[in-house]
């Protein structure tokens, strides 16, 4: 796989939000307006970039058995740094992201990429992977936030849109609208993706970070 493919897979074929279905919580919560969506995307991308580089640099040092706790500590460290930077330089963003900023620690995109990619690949490849995944995450968030902001609030990035600002559907910016728009987007992706999406339903079996959380395989098996 060349470097360009490595980058672009995060945008389309392995889009973390719409295809891999990772990081649903921040996607739903911070896509109420475009600005906070971009902020969330940027914060997660920075954390992902740093953690992927460090984890792949240390991949021969970290013993296999304690890798998950090591990853979590590294990720939590980077999240704390980003949190402090945002608090200092973008207090408005800090207020609008609120609890979701520290919760980047448990965002499965970051732990998932560490487990699936960074611990098996070189530093350069991991960095490119992180940028691709981060860009995919940010763009999807921004697209979803645009839909919710334009139709739900009649504005885009704070700019008022003529007809829609008088006739907005405010439910779209509230919780139910988040689920609804996300559902529609995934249905659209399913409709147009050429490689018929694997039959996998949402659940631990289809979750790429199943290895991370352990136990899943056991439980899914016992369900059937």
């Amino acid at each position: 796989m060349n470097k360009l493919q490595n980058f672009s897979k995060g945008l389309i074929s392995e889009n973390p939000v719409l295809v891999l279905i990772l990081g649903t919580c921040p996607t739903l919560a911070t896509s109420t307006n475009v600005e906070s969506a971009l902020g969330m995307g940027a914060a997660a991308t920075i954390v992902l970039f740093c953690s992927n580089i460090v984890i792949s640099a240390l991949r021969k040092v970290i013993p296999d058995k304690v890798r998950i706790p090591c990853f979590i500590v590294l990720i939590a460290g980077f999240v704390t740094m980003v949190q402090m930077l945002v608090k200092a330089y973008a207090p408005d963003l800090d207020a609008s992201l609120g609890i979701y900023l520290p919760l980047i620690v448990v965002n499965c995109i970051i732990l998932g990429r560490a487990e699936m990619f960074a611990q098996k690949n070189t530093v350069i490849d991991s960095a490119i992977d992180a940028l691709g995944m981060g860009a995919g995450f940010t763009l999807t968030l921004a697209a979803m936030a645009s839909i919710r902001e334009i139709f739900g609030n009649g504005t885009w990035m704070g700019i008022s849109i003529p007809v829609l600002s008088d006739n907005h559907v405010s439910i779209l910016t509230m919780a139910p609208g988040g689920f609804f728009v996300f559902g529609l987007l995934i249905a659209i992706v399913n409709k147009f993706s050429k490689s018929k999406p694997k039959k996998k339903d949402f659940g631990c079996a289809g979750c790429p970070s199943a290895g991370v959380c352990g136990g899943c395989a056991v439980k899914e098996g016992s369900d059937d």
Partner: peptide, 23 residues
Amino acid sequence: IPKSFKGLPITLIAASITSLSFM
């Protein structure tokens, strides 16, 4: 349900309605 809505999309839309009722 329509084919492209099978699985996750319809689940999310059902979640949306459940969430609406909680409002």
